[in-house]
Amino acid sequence: MSTRPIVAVPPEALRIVTFDAAMEASIAELLPRYPTRRAAVLPVLWLCQERFGWISPGVVRAVAARLGESPAFVEGVVSFYTMYQTAPPARYVLQVCTTLSCAWCGGRELVAHLKERLGISFGEKTPDGMFQLVGVQCLGACGTAPVVQINDDYYENLDVAKLDAILDELAGRS
């Protein structure tokens, strides 16, 4: 299993963010692909999320300063999209599809099982910081329903047993 855990930088270390040379190099490589710096707000935020695990207010300020935008503008962008994490996420974020195809093919059972096994609801993290449960709309994999996205990877054609095995392995790895 290749799913890499998210390593979220703790909030106290993300109050004031300065980009290091590697980050600056990645940003410099991105910018020419966009007609304006504003157009690069989304991908630069992605870079930050990959690097820091989530988008803290300090990251918002740093991105705004780097792109010549205001923090209020960048915050508006961050808060519009559900895929930017605005609090330190768990090591594994489980995005469970709740839309029609998955729901019919066993998705509802997966949701019920996950909530029971992890003891959390949508939008919550397990106390050990291992798993986070998010209910999402169609992930575009109806042919292999039901599907759960864990961090950047899709897990398809799931049932409760397969999902348990996956969670056991992820939990046992760390």
């Binding site: 207010p57 918002v60 935008e69 205001s70 923090p71 209020a72 503008f73 915050e75 508006g76 808060s79 519009f80």
Partner: peptide
């Protein structure tokens, strides 16, 4: 050219506000 305020959140959560 100031953008002191933004639309933060979406749907029913959306509101016009300053940063933080």
């Amino acid at each position: 050219g100031v953008a002191a305020i933004g639309v933060v959140g979406r749907g029913l959560e959306a509101r016009v506000t300053t940063w933080l």
